[in-house]
Every structure is written in C-alpha cells, then in structure tokens.
Simulated scan of single mutants.
Amino acid sequence: MTAIDQYAVFGHPINHSKSPRIHGLFAEQTGQRLQYRAADVPAELFRSAVETFFADGGKGLNCTVPLKELAWQFADRLGDRALLAKAVNTLARQTDGRILGDNTDGVGLLNDLTINHRIPLRASRILVLGAGGATRGIVAPLLEQAPAQLVIANRTLEKAEAIADEFADLGELHACGYADLNSRFDVILNATSASLGGDLPPLADDILADGGCCYDLAYANQPTAFVNWGLRHGASLSLDGLGMLVEQAAEAFYLWRGVRPDTRPVIDLLNRERTLPPLRND
C-alpha cells in the first residue's frame, strides 16, 4: 500500500491552529490523499524537528509564529516572495530533495481583501499597524497594488523605519510612531497580535476615513479587540484574518500538490463553526 503523503504545521503555541482542519477540507474537496498535523515546536528545537520531518519523508511544512524567520534560514532555496519578506511560512520538498521556502501570507491577504471582500487597494490610503514578521510578509504585495499612501506605524519607530527603508525600491511608503499619525486612512491593517489579548495601539478616534475598512491579520472564535475597534469607529467592514488564513493555506496547498482548492466554502464553513457571519460576495 502506498504511504500517505505527510504535511504539518509547526508553531509555538499551536493548539489553536485551524490549519489541519483547513487542509483536511482541501484534501477532501480536491480528492488528494494526504495527512496534515499540527506540532508544537519551540524555536530552539526548530531545526532538528524540521530535519527529522523531512528525513522521515515529509512533503511540506507550514511554519507560524515564532518560526518564520528560522524557516527562511533553513530553506535550501527561496522563492521571490520569501526573498523579499525574509520570512518563510511554507517549506516544500522538491523532486531533487532540496527544500524550497516560500511566503504565501501576502497573496493570502490580498485574495481575502480584494476578491472575497472586494476592498479596493489601488489608490487607497493604507495604514499597517506593527513592524514585525507579519508586516514584512505583506508590504511588497500591498505596494504592488499601487496605493495612494502606505504607512507603517509602530511603537518602536526604528523597526518601522527599517522596513520602510528595505522596501523603498518597490514603492513609496512611510514609517512613523503611533503618536505621529495625522492622516485618515481608507484601510487599516492590524499586523500585531496584541488585539488577541485585548490590547490596541493608541489610535486617534478620527483616523479611519468615512466608509473605511479595518482588518486584523489575527483571528479568533470571537471578534478581536481591533475588529471591535473598527466597528465602534464606523468601519464599513471590520474583519479578522480567518479568510487570510484559508487563502494563504490554499496557496501552500497549490505549491505542494499542484491543485488549487476552492476557498469560499471552507471560509463559510469555518465561520459557521465559530458562529460569526459567513462570507458574502454577492
């Protein structure tokens, strides 16, 4: 009997992960025969765990917090998206045995924003909160959309400035501290994980433009603090990152299997399971 192809997600913590559920649904939908599991892997054990996984015949890995930069260092070769982000969330074993590192976060975010929710990014004023690995993964794809303005705000200004300098060749973007925000934005993206714990950056009440949208890259079974902030401040849409999670998973699934799953029924099912409103794209 042919062995079943093995895939996994490594992270720390990982108990909350919906990735095994998502990839199981993708496999069922597309008729692919595979197993996908979650494993709690702290940073200090990452290299040995990945080496063991691939030595045992594993085909592909997703890597989440706090392992994306370590995965970038581990890969034998890097896709263009990973080279720009300096972070890897997807590792794939190639036919020659080498390990490809890629980053599907940016395309996952764009697909959820522009296709699933029809949020226009071109010529929009976009604010990204935070200057960590999540921000690094989305800056280049956002700049490709030709926004009117892209600003990275962070508590530590130097970290935001470092990202702005690094990506300056791709388009115009600016860095500032939260206290220096003096514009109104059409789209505000929270790329920190702080709102899961109820914490929010100190944002002015009038920073969101009329009809603007809020999007939290984090997700939970209940609205995050940032999603609630958007609702209180009149956002036309205030969303969390579950759709991004499914979309980036679909891109990873395609890299591994050469088959692109339909994300909409998976997003709707997961939203029903957590009792939040399902995706509508009428």
Rank of each mutant, 00 (worst) to 15 (best):
E144Q: 11
T275E: 13
D262A: 08
V227R: 03
L142T: 03
L142F: 01
T64P: 00
A250N: 06
N154M: 06
G234R: 12
Q222P: 01
A85M: 05
F253E: 02
W72G: 00
A39Q: 14
Q73I: 03
Q73S: 08
Y254E: 15
R33Y: 13
Y178T: 08
V187Q: 04
A92C: 10
L231G: 11
G171A: 08
G197A: 04
G258E: 06
N89G: 14
A75V: 08
G243F: 05
K59H: 12
N154K: 01
D165A: 15
G243D: 09
D216A: 03
A140W: 13
W256A: 01
R155A: 03
F46L: 02
K159D: 08
G230K: 06
T95Y: 12
A82W: 09
R280C: 13
G234A: 15
L78K: 14
L83N: 05
L91I: 04
G230C: 05
R77P: 00
I119T: 14
D282R: 10
A164H: 09
K18A: 02
L269M: 00
T263P: 14
L34W: 10
A8G: 11
R47S: 11
Q32P: 00
G101R: 13
Y36W: 04
L70Y: 08
L113I: 14
G108M: 07
Q6Y: 11
L78N: 06
Y36C: 07
G133D: 09
T30C: 12
L45Y: 09
Q35A: 14
L279Q: 01
L208Y: 10
L231Y: 00
R136E: 07
L196I: 03
G133R: 11
G79C: 05
N271V: 00
A249F: 07
R280G: 05
L189F: 07
R93D: 13
A134F: 01
V41L: 03
A160T: 03
D205H: 14
D80T: 07
A160R: 09
L245I: 02
C213R: 09
V50Y: 12
I99A: 02
L255R: 14
